[in-house]
Amino acid sequence: MSATILSAAITFALGALALAMVFATIRILGGPRAQDRVLGLDSLYVNTMLLFLTLGIRNGTAFFFEAAIVISMLGFVATVALAKFLMRGEIIE
């Protein structure tokens, strides 16, 4: 009974997060400006991290947790670097 409830919730969560990743990807591809793409990338990273946490619950292992923490750190560094680049790129122009 409890396994049924939980696996239904996990399936829902996986679907919702995958759809959220699709939306973020559309924003990355669609732009229209560079800052929109960077914002989409940041959102994609957060959604991927949440997806990994959910997969960790489903499989009952802590390995996904470590992957999730690496993803969130990479996402942070990538977004900061890109935001910095957006400001500097204009200065050079």
Binding site: A13, I26, V46, L50
Partner: peptide, 26 residues
Amino acid sequence: LWAAIPAAAFLVLGSSLALIGSFGLL
């Protein structure tokens, strides 16, 4: 069961909010 129900509720809540957020982004 007492642990499965809140866990399932939090999962659905969290993933729905993430989905709404990305929908708003779009």
